[in-house]
Design a protein around this nucleic acid. Structure first.
Lengths: 253, 253
DNA sequence: TCTTCAATAATCGCATACAATACGGTTCTT
DNA sequence: AAGAACCGTATTGTATGCGATTATTGAAGA
């Protein structure tokens, strides 16, 4: 491929001549970043998987440069691990890191709850309740749908605080939690109990900040205990084989 | 400059033949990132300042590629604003963003305090107290020294939690606070009251989590009120002129 | 058969090259 | 003279290329 002309920038000129484009225009680099991010969160790219620059670039139709840029940002967010001169892998958090992430997430979302208590508009409360109803409906199937929805509930809450940084941190923690659950989570742990979401909304409505914070804390705590306690997969072959080796009297280095 | 041979990788082979290098080896990209980060935090690069890729690369002796990579990461951390096709600037947070950052920081550091209460080893407590004594000594001069030290106190605390993610977030919030104070802070606001640091250590030692969290919260709250309340500079002309316009019955768009 | 080692292949780190866009000034029009 | 259209320049966006580093394979030696 010699040099494809750049696909024309995605501008949307309006009738008045202005250009909307509130946030569109770092287009391809951002697109690569988003694509990889989604692929990781949805586990199309599994934890620990190797991420070679050029095959990914080829797949996405961009050069290694942009892929690299995306890797850098994903590494900051903890979704990929960047080993010098050895390339990138989808992050494979240790159990300890997983604890860290959940601890921070609990702290952040407690903040969200405190911030929101008593400030929820009627429209917002309605939106949350509608969302919970969706969750309820999807509760039966254990498809990815159910997981996505319960994640989105927390994101929605963070959005409603109007605090952009808080939102970003919650999103980040949340996506790392997806990774973690992919590794250590039980197969059908239904993630979030719908009833707990309901109670939380109630407390927020009532303006009871302490109770809301408490509920959120417990809610996330139980997600951990429900889903995380049993390590399901091991980091690599050594971890898998170590017990066998020991029981046979061998000494793994 | 044709192609300078790459300066040999900074390895430090030990007598046993192993290479220490616990974290050295993404060398130049990381170096650029760190250099820019420090320059921004220490206000060698002032908020809002333009950051042209090639002049910066020239200055640091690297190509635009690496500078760009660093910009991306700094943008994620909120230290640089990246405007598509218009390059990068040192971030210039609005007052609203400033509030957001401080709110989140308070929440994060409350977490730190709760985590640490009662878990502080004797050595850690001693280290903190030594640090406070340094702060006390530097309190007289209003040089950057004093500011740096009070920042480091909070970083040290975050480190002691052993939670890497929490540390990263606190660092991030902290560096953004530096930016914010550079814009909106009063000239000689001495940032942190040393006595408040002392009280905090005491509560952590006593294992009184609630009190420690409370103290931390108030401490950071007073930093805000001490330093932040008076907007010193305005974002741009519109902000300056808006009040005049209103008082004349004009309507700024 | 199990190591050790060397040659080769694959991949990364970074600089450079080229295309696209935005900016500033000049000229042309009204 | 004020504004619009034009053009040259500066700067950004992205691809590609070259040297360096790491992984791999296969052969020789123990």
């Amino acid at each position: 491929m010699p040099r494809p002309t750049r696909p024309s920038r995605a501008k949307t000129p309006m009738t008045n001549g202005k250009v909307t484009e509130t946030r569109g225009p770092v287009p391809r680099a951002q697109a690569v970043y988003k694509a990889l991010r989604r692929a990781i969160i949805e586990q199309a790219l599994k934890p620990g998987m190797k991420l070679p620059e050029d095959s990914i670039g080829e797949q996405l139709g961009v050069s290694r440069t942009l892929v690299r840029e995306a890797f850098g940002r994903l590494a900051v967010e903890g979704l990929v691990e960047l080993k010098p001169n050895r390339g990138a892998n989808v992050a494979y958090p240790t159990l300890e890191e997983a604890r860290d992430v959940f601890d921070v997430r609990r702290g952040l979302e407690r903040l969200v709850a405190e911030n929101l208590a008593g400030r929820l508009t009627a429209a917002q409360a309605a939106e949350l309740e509608a969302h919970v109803r969706l969750e309820e409906k999807a509760h039966g199937q254990d498809g990815p749908e159910s997981i996505r929805l319960s994640g989105e509930f927390h994101i929605k809450l963070a959005e409603m605080t109007g605090n952009a940084l808080l939102l970003r941190y919650v999103q980040e923690a949340s996506s790392r939690c997806s990774l973690i659950l992919a590794i250590y989570g039980r197969p059908h742990s239904s993630e979030c109990a719908v009833s707990e979401h309901r109670q939380l909304i109630e407390a927020l409505r009532a303006g009871d900040a302490a109770r809301a914070a408490q509920l959120m804390d417990h809610h996330l705590q139980s997600v951990v205990t429900r889903a995380l306690l049993a390590p399901r997969a091991e980091r690599d072959i050594r971890d898998v084989l170590a017990p066998y080796a020991l029981s046979e009297g061998l000494t793994p280095s």
